[in-house]
Nucleic acid binder design. Structure first.
Lengths: 337, 337
DNA sequence: CTGTTAGCGCATTCAG
DNA sequence: CTGAATGCGCTAACAG
């Protein structure tokens, strides 16, 4: 691959001039510029991002860690972040941690070695010592969707408490008293928020809260499925279920189908993470729609602010958290009781 | 961030020794090695992947271009490729082209500048001049899912002809004669294959083929939806529909629902891209399951072979294409007629 | 307006 | 077994 020196030689100028033509970093006489551009074209020269990064100490790369790229929610998040960030000339390195803290750690290490300019992280839940290294090296961290177990940067997330509350309140108002909720490990801030919103709704409506109706499951579809089966057999008196994510929703619907339990007749349903197919099952699902676009916008805005501050040597950790509201979309999967 | 020189100084050795300790590239006296490792730990030294790439001319990075990261199919593809490739110490830079040739071109340019070691590409359909540059610089290209419009590397794809044939034959055997098929632009090899398989099935069964039942739609959900509506109103006599991807399936189901058309009573349905929710709609969808794992395996194996060959200065283009078979899963969305 | 030069952080000869 | 020296491709002073 031809280098800046090849171009300089061919154009009969110095490498400095070539560099300045390429980067528009100082005025170059039109004829000189043309000679350089011609040489560049003839040699099919393409500056090495590697070499450039080495000298400038800037990679224009943002590391993105998501817990599960096959989840529609995270996939949409990645797409949104990429679209907004590319407008500012940043490129993403997306890594899929698959909900494993060990993978998260490995990727943090790799991305640190690659000297990314910043990170957007949906953490797995466990604290990561490497976060501190990023902070120590002034590489801003922005957490998205989930709060880190240790504060190492601003958080952009859903108001999970409100969302959990809204789902529960919707059912309570329809007359439900025995509402089960399917959640993941309470190590995740999303889970804590949604569960506590659920609890608070019961308190506010002065209804007895049965903690045993909070079912905890692993994130895999099979696990969600099994937990849903268990839920239906051990607590058959419940009249409603809240599934707190996409996989839980699938698991619940599978279990209902197997046990010939009809919704909303036998049990009402509220699903988190709205999806196109929620409209296509019979009857359509009442869902909590997460404002993905807003999350992406806020994450990118915050990250950019952090990158700015960094150059100004201020403390990037001082940026404010952002919480966005979800929206309950009432459809036919919940009935009055 | 501390450098190799800081470590060398602290350990009282040369940078060469530090380098060799880090890379295990020559025998170092145990005490020396220990001194180096201690210094590394104390300084929290982390070699710069940038600098290393500059000297070695290797990035251990693979560029991955997918058409639409929010599609369950491509998301699963990315996940599979990442899982297999990380075992060999490669990292991915995943880029979402959003089905736009211009974005594909921009990303090719960026990844070339970043000197990736290889590429896995699901092309948008239009030929990309930059492919030639990769080939010229001996950076192997592996195409996945879709054939490139110009042969620039091995192709790992579905046997789309067989899949289209299987879907159509399934319906023909059930007695259907008026079968509509919803496809994307025939610029895509996947579309051509599926469509031609459809045609061939009619020929083989000596049935008249109505070309006007091949409906072409853009890939967006709204477009698929509108095309499905049009299909149902302009060709109401059809007794079956084949939706050739995830979005088309959603569009068809939406249109059926709006027009109160029941499947399989009024119209039978075959959907490409099996998804968990296909089991949860009523009745469950007969689907074509794509062997994603096999695609990923073959792509990674082929890429690794190409990377090997490259070092051996052989022609990486000479690697064989791989075609894998899809599987039709008969469920209740098709009825006998 | 342009050229010279000195690194950026590392791997890798070649000597010892 | 170890060190000194060179260069990867580029940008950024500094000089002219």
């Amino acid at each position: 691959m031809s280098t800046i020196r090849d171009v300089a030689k061919l154009a009969g100028v110095s490498t400095a001039t070539v560099s300045h033509v390429v980067n528009n970093s100082r005025t170059v006489r039109p004829e000189t510029r043309k000679a350089v551009l011609d040489a560049i074209k003839r040699l099919n020269y393409r500056p090495s991002a590697i070499a450039r990064s080495l000298t400038t100490n800037v990679t224009r790369t943002i590391g993105v860690l998501v817990a599960n790229i096959t989840s529609p929610f995270f996939a949409a998040l990645v797409r949104g972040i990429e679209n907004r960030l590319e407008a500012y000339g940043y490129q993403l390195i997306v890594c899929n941690t698959d909900e494993q803290a060990s993978r998260e750690a490995r990727y943090l290490d790799l991305l640190l070695a690659r000297r990314v300019d910043g990170m957007i992280i949906a953490p797995t839940g466990e604290p990561q010592p490497l976060w501190r290294d990023f902070v120590a090296h002034n590489i801003p961290l922005v957490f998205i969707d989930r709060k880190p177990s240790e504060p190492c940067g601003p958080v952009i997330a859903l108001d999970n408490f409100a969302a959990g509350y809204a789902a529960t309140e919707h059912l309570i108002r329809l007359g439900h008293r025995h509402i089960a909720i399917l959640v993941r490990s309470p190590m995740l801030s999303t889970v804590v928020g949604r569960r506590d919103g659920y609890r608070q709704a019961f308190r506010d409506y002065k209804l007895p809260l049965d903690e045993s109706l909070i079912y905890v499951s692993d994130y895999a579809l099979e696990a969600a499925h099994e937990t849903a089966q268990r839920l239906l057999t051990t607590s058959p008196w419940i009249t409603a279920i809240i599934a707190t994510n996409h996989t839980m929703t699938l698991g619940v619907l599978e279990a209902l189908q197997e046990q010939y339990i009809k919704y909303p007749d036998d049990v009402s349903l509220v699903a988190f993470d709205d999806n196109p197919w929620h409209l296509l099952v019979t009857p359509p699902l009442t869902s909590i729609r997460l404002p993905i676009q807003e999350l992406c916008d806020a994450a990118v805005t915050t990250l950019r602010a952090a990158l700015e501050k960094k150059s100004a040597r201020a403390d990037a950790r001082a940026l404010p958290d952002v919480f966005v509201k979800a929206q309950l979309i009432a459809r036919a999967s919940c009935r009055k009781i």
